[in-house]
């Protein structure tokens, strides 16, 4: 469904991606883990058309989307839930969700308003409240729900557990399991390697702009190197790699 080939990306001298290739098949959940500054967000942003790669190609459903603007990519059903939630703070929860429907652009909805409210009941309770007044966990749920309103065929999630309390993290991962069960295709970026491996079919490890490990998630979870670097000291293991970019 998604095929990324030899993608390279640089920001004013910094080489954020150095030849990344990956693919995601329909119905799969693929996890992308790696330390701070590894280039995970850069990769998602290149796929979404927010930043332009220096080299390489991105195809979605066989169509070359490397040069398409972000809104057209979203309208094809390749939808990113960005790092740090990025909800529209001065709009209500309901308005945020309705804005998410822009990406439908004539395609049939997959998740209705009732579906996302059933998934995250707190959003129904807070529907009339400004998004900026929600807690971090609620904003993350809103960000995911807003993405779902645009009928994603492939959902890109950038660190949905970032900065959330463990209880909320568990709730977010339960929601992701529910989405996977419904057959949604997901590319999940996480620093929380343990949870990400548990939630995915396949996983890739990105370090300094390169993919250094890949394979079925269960296998990676047994890989001594991955254990040492990412699973060693519990969920914060990735922090030992800080500044590796």
């Amino acid at each position: 469904m998604l095929a990324v080939e030899a993608l390279a990306l640089r920001y004013a001298g910094i080489r954020a991606l150095r030849g990344v290739s990956l693919s995601v098949a329909e119905g799969e959940t693929v996890a992308l883990i790696g330390p701070n500054g590894a280039g995970k967000s850069s990769l998602l942003n290149a796929i979404s058309g927010i930043v332009r790669p220096a080299a390489g190609r991105i195809r979605f459903d066989g169509r070359d989307i490397t040069a398409l603007p972000p809104w057209e990519i979203a309208r094809m059903g390749l939808i990113q839930v960005p790092e740090g939630r990025q909800v529209f703070a001065e709009m209500t929860v309901l308005e945020n969700l309705l804005t998410g429907r822009t990406a439908l652009a004539g395609r049939a909805e997959i998740f209705s308003l009732d579906d996302v409210f059933a998934m995250f009941p707190i959003l129904r309770e807070r529907a009339g409240q400004l998004a900026g007044s929600l807690s971090g966990g609620q904003q993350q749920m809103l960000a995911i729900a807003r993405g779902l309103m645009g009928a994603p065929r492939l959902l890109l999630l950038d660190e949905p557990s970032l900065g959330l309390a463990p209880l909320i993290v568990a709730q977010v991962f339960r929601a992701l399991a529910g989405l996977k069960a419904r057959g949604l295709t997901i590319l999940l970026v996480e620093q929380n390697a343990r949870q990400a491996l548990a939630a995915s079919d396949r996983a890739l490890v990105l370090e300094q702009g390169r993919i250094v490990h890949h394979g079925p998630s269960a296998e990676l979870a047994r890989d001594p190197d991955v254990i040492a670097h990412y699973l060693g000291q519990g969920d914060t293991g990735a922090m030992t790699q800080q500044g590796g970019g």
Binding site: A74, Q86, V87, F88, M91, R146
Partner: peptide, 12 residues
């Protein structure tokens, strides 16, 4: 409010 997030929602 957030041009980048808006683009990710399919807004031009």
């Amino acid at each position: 409010q957030n041009e980048r997030a808006a683009m990710l929602m399919g807004i031009n």
